[in-house]
Amino acid sequence: MIEINDVSLWYSPELKVLSNISAFIDRGKKIVVCGASGSGKSSLLRCINGLERFQKGEILVNGVSVMSPTTDIYKLRSRMGMVFQHFELYPHMTVMDNITLAPIRVGKKSKGQAKAIATSLLERVGIPEQADKYPSTLSGGQQQRVAIARALAMEPEIMLFDEPTSALDPEMIKEVLDVMVDLAHEGMTMVVVTHEMGFAREVADEVIFMDQGAMVERQDVQTFFTAPENLRAKQFLKRIIR
């Protein structure tokens, strides 16, 4: 489903962000990506949907190359939902308009269809009563749930999460993780950059550990938590789990 072949990304010869990353992510798999800040996790995520243009290697999504000039990158992106650390809801639109914008403008759905989808998604994330409010009147946890609903509105095959709970107050983390766990149980293919190790234990098939732009460890969850091979991964786990 997602095939990452020897991808390298740099901003200048001295500033290498990703070095020779390779990975295969099959349909329905849940991958958790972790590592220290600046290790290239978010960049890798942005390479997958072509928001970041990398210099070397290839990424194929459903067999379609992300970087190829002949690829309809807009169509490809519309098949992948993305959720950001700081939500990035559109502040000048209501919750409903936030969710229906892409389905109407990109997915060419009618307003009625888009609203019906949005309403059912808001119910799914547990905040149907917030539809007509503006994002700034919502709590962080509610905003992130709206952002997840917005990403799901395009009926994506893959969901990319970029530290979705890092900007949240502790008491709001669970409500967002619960939505993500449900999504995982429904069979969505997910790539999640997070330090929520509880979430990783519960749903992840595999954990990728990154260090200075390189993928230094890739293990199934059990092995990663009990017997990581890489020294940095060991140190990281020691620091993050008490």
């Binding site: 942005r46 949907n49 928001l51 807009y74 169509k75 992106r77 519309s78 992948m80 939902g81 993305m82 950001f84 700081h86 990035e88 809801l89 559109y90 502040p91 000048h92 914008l101 892409a102 403008r105 990109v106 997915g107 917005r150 990403a151 395009m154």
Partner: peptide
Amino acid sequence: PAGQVMAARASGMTPFQTARYVVLPQAIK
């Protein structure tokens, strides 16, 4: 904020749609 552009582009919007629906309404205000 750059994140607004990223969110719009991630949902499949073209640069023109991103400007028309997300960036300009906020910029004009």
